[in-house]
Design a protein around this nucleic acid. Structure first.
Lengths: 203, 203
DNA sequence: TTAATAAAATACCGAACGTTACATAAATGT
DNA sequence: ACATTTATGTAACGTTCGGTATTTTATTAA
């Protein structure tokens, strides 16, 4: 069994980079990109500003690296949803898992990608745009899955895959707002149940 | 016909306060509460900082006064929706007018109350909370209207007025995010049409 | 003509912002 | 032992932040 710790030269880092990024992620999640200050980040991480900059780069780069952890970890449930056997189950899985995620008390409420840079100053338009593109790419994953469902006869041929995907995406984004405003798991689940009533099926 | 302009003492104000608030509103609408800087506000208004502070107070008070114009003007369509004769028409009016409003090119896209203070620093939690309460009060207006619809036999007795209201509210908030991300009037209208398919009716 | 009033313009306040120079400490390679 | 490498802590950088003290200007009342 190989030891992965190859001894590095120089003074050893006193903090774990992964843990540090997770803490930074939590701050960005709560405060948004601009609402999170470098001072708040370094305080939460227990390190000094030069250490933060040396390890991760400037604020935008710290955010992007925290975002990578977010999409690799918490948000991976989207893949799980897309892999469901039927379009209905894809939609149901996507929405219910989103609700579970949003109301999980182990991390800040709501969705980082939805909220972290919705309204920003002119300095942060690149970050705003980055998150917009992330949202769209997730929506497109759903749309492609529903196109496949039409080919498989699982959705009616007159169903609009893009509209269904955008409908789910819109509900998801709205629920993210709702949960940060205090909506409960139960309330959101009722919304999900109602929203799925009109889901198109072939039989 | 009485002249309303009673001559005031002192140097006359060179800007119109209503117009100034409307311009401030537009900045807050685009940038959010924290994303809008006093410098950007004064530049847009064409006045100096002391004039702004003397006329309206500090940043939070300027925001609140701009917000008052927003709820009295653009957002008045909610009253119109609630006054529709049936629950279905209430929902339809609410969503379609929201889409028209969101995509109106005469002002920034999306909803100020949804977006202006979703993710903020610890300094602006009061503003964040204020907007959350506004959202909830609008949702409650819808819920009360649907309770009335149940009494009138316009909605099934087993319908949950709160859930229906929260469903509409969630869609509204999600569409606000969608439109700031580039969604078109047509795309949102398709979502609205789909969302209304499962609306409960008594016959 | 002068006093009183109120807004304008200039110029500044301390604090916080993101970011970095610089000297020091702790490890390894030779 | 000593050079090299890399992270650390302190302390500062220039800029922007929200907010204001002070002086000047424009108007009305007396």
């Amino acid at each position: 069994m190989l030891e992965k710790v190859k001894k590095l030269r120089g003074r050893p880092r006193v903090f774990d980079m992964g843990e540090a990024l997770d803490k930074a992620l939590e701050i960005f999640w709560k405060r948004g990109f601009e609402g999170a200050s470098i001072a708040e980040l370094t305080e939460a991480l227990g390190i000094n500003k030069p250490s933060l900059y040396a390890a991760f780069g400037n604020k935008e780069e710290i955010f992007k690296k925290a975002l990578s952890r977010y999409v690799a970890g918490p948000v991976a449930f989207i893949q799980e949803a897309v892999n469901q056997p039927t379009a209905y189950e894809v939609a149901q899985s996507f929405l219910t898992k989103a609700v579970e995620f949003f109301t999980d008390t182990n991390h800040p409420k709501g969705c980082l990608i939805v909220q972290a840079a919705l309204s920003v100053s002119a300095d942060s338009l690149l970050v705003q745009d980055l998150l917009t593109k992330y949202r769209y790419s997730y929506e497109q994953q759903l749309a492609k899955r529903f196109e496949k469902a039409k080919e498989e006869g699982d959705l009616p041929t007159d169903a609009n895959a893009e509209t269904l995907a955008k409908f789910l995406s819109t509900l998801h984004q709205g629920m993210s707002v709702q949960v940060t405003s205090g909506a409960s798991n139960g309330e959101l689940m009722e919304i999900v149940e109602f929203a799925l009533k009109s889901w198109p099926r072939t039989n």
